[in-house]
Amino acid sequence: MMNAFALYINYATLSLRGQMQYRVSFILGTLGQLLGTGVEFVGILALFDRFESLSQWSLAEVAFFYGLVNVAFAFTDSLSRGFDHVGDLVRTGEFDRMLLRPRSTVLQLIGKEFTLKRLGRFLQGGGVLIWSTLYLDIAWSPWVMALTAVTVFCGACFFLGLFINIGTLSFWTTETLELMNVLTYGGIEASKYPLAIYRPWFRRFFTMVIPMGCVTYFPVLAILGRTDPLGTSLAFQYAAPLFGLLYFILSLLIWRLGLRYYRSTGS
């Protein structure tokens, strides 16, 4: 495990140095991400300027959701690129090369491309998060602090799980991947707002099928010290992030199934 981590650091450093060769592209990319996600948030600001609140959620609260998800997703985004390209890797034979190496395929795919441009998203998300806490009255007990950290971690794992799902699917097909983006990017967008504002079927889907709400909405309620309009208990809110972790582990298992399928069909 330690060894795998060391290898990852190595992959990441090399990938970084590769990106640094194209310095202008790196700076522009980071700046683009910062501005792109920035504009997104300006949209939210404009919304609140016009309507003042979003069914009982204040701007600062929504900003907290938004910032937290962006920070978690920035981690994922810098690790998950390899899974977006499994189809291409299979076609070019590069995936076979990964199987020729004495390492897990997941580790190699994560290490394939560490994209530092995502730093832009991380900075923007972190900025919004900190800004929101200035206006929120959060009781920062050690429990709440730990919950925040666990939520970000489990959130990043959960999002990574979604990308692993996409990679797994491309062992079978290359055609439905665009559709899957509705789940990943669409879901991530949706999770930037409190789950309670959505319709029940949508809430149920993103809690029970894809536990997106478990790594954002429920724990954030506990952090903000709000009672849930949907009526969940505090204990559940604290435990919820673990479902994100569980989803990640499940995704890894499904990946192994996909890998077994690939290795028996070779297509």
């Binding site: 090399l14 060769q21 190496r101 390492r103």
Partner: peptide, 15 residues
Amino acid sequence: DLPVIESFDLLRDIY
């Protein structure tokens, strides 16, 4: 994109 020696070093860690 990497110099040859860095590929070698990475393979050392992979293997």
